[in-house]
Amino acid sequence: MQLNFNNPQPIYLQMVDETKRALVRGEIAPGDKIPSLKERAQMSNINPNTVQRAYQEMEREGLTETLRGQGTFIKNDPELLLHLRSEMAHIAVKHFIEEMHGLGIEAAEIERILRDQLSKEKKEG
């Protein structure tokens, strides 16, 4: 897992995002058990309080559920993946557009550049 301590985003939110990305990429699936707090802290040498905060956030966002005595699981909800996928796609596109605006490139040109690049990549396949 890539945590970036130079990123101003708090570490616990980076951990939540990493779990979302792993889900969207299919590395973990809905219904999967995820490591316990203690295991997670130990795997990455991350402060247990930070891990706990990440787990609380995932539960709050409806990403995970904790079953008493059994551990923490990715919520077994078929909607979850679709929802996450579109959420993360929107975030990525927003970043892209911000970046382009930052370069002074406006909507019509963004569309054109994007279309050109996509067809180029398709050909190169």
Binding site: F5, N6, N7, P8, P10, Y12
Partner: peptide, 15 residues
């Protein structure tokens, strides 16, 4: 907190 410091300075504790 480490998180606050990182967000105030925009970089890691090391930096």
């Amino acid at each position: 907190s480490a998180d606050n410091l990182r967000s105030d300075y925009g970089c890691s504790l090391e930096n």
